[in-house]
């Protein structure tokens, strides 16, 4: 019996800020930034949105897309590095807001940008072992970047929810593989508002080492080659890194294109690769094969291969697509953006 994704849902706030506007404030050349990062604008949460509200909207969208009700969900794991509470789960808020309580497993995950895919693996294991029928994995963030830090150009808001189960599977999860080391490329200490990072150390020793090793590990494990896949999704902290790993691994830019949402979304951290995957599922056809590798600083990567089933066509248009969620944004200036992000301490 196959096991895989039975439904998915995405939420992206309506607001955006352009690279030009942030660059204007800090005296950077916007063209250098756009060229260097491959990002043109990023999403910004509303003043009354946080990781919990984004996770709830994504979860509700996933249920709306399918015939499932909250009561069918046996586990909810929410991955984020911006949980509204340091202690008090986001998962319980989501569970209550989709009426999945009280008979369910629930917890919050944190593993920088890959906590959402870690949640996906947990659900996969629980469903595979028949502990639960359906598990919901969510990656959502309202990512923080300190004012004037390079991260500020990309740290975005958004989330995606995936339900893993054995019936009505729209994309079979063929295999998964993780690569983990203890690496200090990016961190946020307890009680600190903004993260710190190792600058250029986040590149080769962080992102590239783990994404390449993880992707190669899964290709090896599944005895596949890049050309066996129709789509490839990589964690996208900017527009350059995922393109570079794709070509290093031998994937074409064509395979990467549909899943590359960072240019208009920014880096939604735990939501990043999962929103990229959703963008692929929005257009995938039965039989399509998808390769995905997430990355989380600290550091590790989770790789997956998916095979899309006949069921996909039944649910693709039942909830807003990523393209729809990225359309018709409201642009903010830096001052209002700063208010939305609580950068002005009131």
């Amino acid at each position: 019996m196959s096991i895989g994704i039975t439904t998915y849902g995405v939420y992206i706030p309506r607001y955006r800020i352009r690279v030009e506007e942030i660059a204007r404030v800090w005296g950077d050349d916007p063209n250098d930034i756009k060229k260097g990062l491959g990002v043109f604008e990023k999403s910004v949460p509303d003043r009354d949105e946080d990781t919990a509200t984004i996770a709830v909207e994504a979860a509700r969208s996933a249920l709306q897309r399918s015939g499932l009700a909250g009561v069918d969900i046996g586990a909810i794991y929410v991955g984020s590095e911006s949980h509204p509470y340091a202690v008090k789960p986001t998962a319980t808020i989501v569970a209550e807001a989709i009426r999945a309580t009280p008979e369910l497993m629930a917890a919050d995950y944190e593993f920088a940008c890959k906590a959402g895919t870690a949640a996906l693996q947990t659900c996969l294991g629980l469903v595979a072992a028949d502990y639960i029928k359906y598990g919901m994995a969510i990656g959502a963030d309202t990512a923080q970047g300190a004012p004037a830090d390079a991260l500020e150009y990309t740290a975005a808001a958004g989330g995606a929810a995936y339900v893993v189960g054995k019936s009505h599977v729209i994309a079979e999860i063929e295999d998964t593989y993780s690569f983990t080391t203890d690496t200090f490329d990016f961190w946020r200490r307890q009680g600190q508002q903004y993260p710190k990072h190792g600058g250029r150390f986040t590149g080769e020793p962080g992102y590239f080492k783990h994404v390449l090793a993880g992707a190669r590990g899964l290709l090896h494990k599944t005895r596949s080659k890049p050309e066996d896949f129709d789509f490839a999704v990589f964690h996208q902290p900017n527009g350059k890194f995922p393109r570079k790993v794709a070509s290093t691994l031998g994937f074409s830019q064509q395979q990467v294109k549909q899943g590359l949402v960072v240019e208009k979304l920014g880096n939604a951290y735990s939501g990043s690769s999962l929103i990229g995957l959703a963008s692929v599922l929005d257009v995938a056809e039965p039989g399509s094969r998808i390769f995905m590798t997430s990355f989380g600083s600290g550091a590790g990567s989770d790789s997956f291969t998916f095979r899309v089933t006949e069921e996909i066509g039944k649910i693709q248009d039942k909830a807003p697509s990523v393209a729809e969620l990225l359309a018709a944004p409201i642009y903010l200036d830096y001052a209002i953006y700063a208010k939305h992000k609580n950068k002005i301490v009131l």
């Binding site: 949105e49 946080d50 919990a52």
Partner: peptide, 16 residues
């Protein structure tokens, strides 16, 4: 839609 209604200051609960 699901939103924050308010919060009890920076260390209190958040009302959704």
């Amino acid at each position: 839609v699901f939103r924050k209604l308010g919060e009890e200051g920076p260390d209190g609960v958040i009302y959704y």
